[in-house]
Computed example of a mutant assay.
Amino acid sequence: MTDLSALPANLPGPLDDGDCDHLPGARVPSVPLPTTAGNWVDLAGLPGRTVLYVYPRTGRPDEPLPGGWDLIPGARGCTPQSCAFRDHHAELQAAGARVFGLSTQDTAYQREAAGRLHLPFPLLSDAELRFAAALRLPTFEVEGHTLLRRVTLMLREGVVEHVFYPVFPPDRNAADVLAWLAAHPA
């Protein structure tokens, strides 16, 4: 099986295609999303700063990755990205930001990943793509599934304050967010 915690050396990086250019300054849509903590979160109504890292899908060690997964620019790296946000979680909180991960996987699938990876923050499920459609997040298709392209949004009081896109390499994203927060204190 594939080691999900490691990034292949020859992983193709995504290009900035402009698909997130509309996001800075956008109002976050009011779309309550189920969480791995067993509750619902409406990102539009959260006070303060929120880091929302959007990722395609978390793999499982007992299942093969979709065919050609490593060849899709920006697809691989959800586990390393989530683990980096886990490892920097206390620093992100100290910088005044809460953290959520978001994918189209259902909450039960995400709950397994959150437990296995020991994530100290909830994952949000947008299985019906309602949030993604309302915010016009970029997507791609794999094996009949619509997945979200990797993007990290800095939200403040229900507005997109900053966008990290494309995100590459994904395991460096949490450190990049911390550096941005240090340069832009609340």
Rank of each mutant, 00 (worst) to 15 (best):
V160C: 13
A186E: 06
C78E: 04
G68R: 15
P73N: 07
L11F: 03
E91C: 09
R27V: 04
V142C: 11
P185N: 11
L153P: 13
P66T: 03
L155H: 00
T104G: 15
D3H: 14
A182F: 00
D16S: 15
P14S: 01
D19A: 14
F164V: 12
R116M: 13
C83N: 05
V159H: 05
D70C: 10
D171H: 14
G77A: 08
G101N: 12
L178W: 01
A175M: 05
R86P: 09
E157A: 15
E91F: 00
A134S: 13
L102N: 12
V177M: 11
L52N: 12
P122E: 09
T139V: 15
A183C: 14
W180P: 11
R57V: 00
D87K: 00
S125W: 05
A186N: 10
L15M: 13
C83K: 02
V51N: 04
H118C: 14
N10S: 07
L129Y: 05
R49L: 10
R49I: 00
D87T: 12
E161N: 06
F131T: 02
S125L: 10
L148G: 02
L23S: 02
T2D: 15
R86H: 04
G18V: 08
D62A: 10
V151M: 10
A114Y: 02
P73E: 01
A182C: 06
A134V: 05
L129H: 15
L178N: 10
L181D: 06
S125F: 06
V160K: 03
F121D: 07
A95T: 10
Y109I: 13
L46D: 00
V151Q: 02
A26D: 08
L147W: 03
F85C: 12
G59E: 04
A97V: 06
A95R: 10
V31I: 15
W69N: 09
P80D: 05
G68W: 02
G25F: 00
L155P: 05
G68K: 14
E63F: 10
Y53M: 00
R150Q: 09
V31R: 08
E63S: 11
R172K: 12
M1D: 15
G25Q: 03
Y165N: 15
P8W: 11
I72Q: 03
H162P: 10
P120M: 05
T104E: 11
T35C: 15
A179Q: 14
L181I: 03
R86V: 02
P56Q: 04
D21R: 09
A44Y: 08
E112G: 14
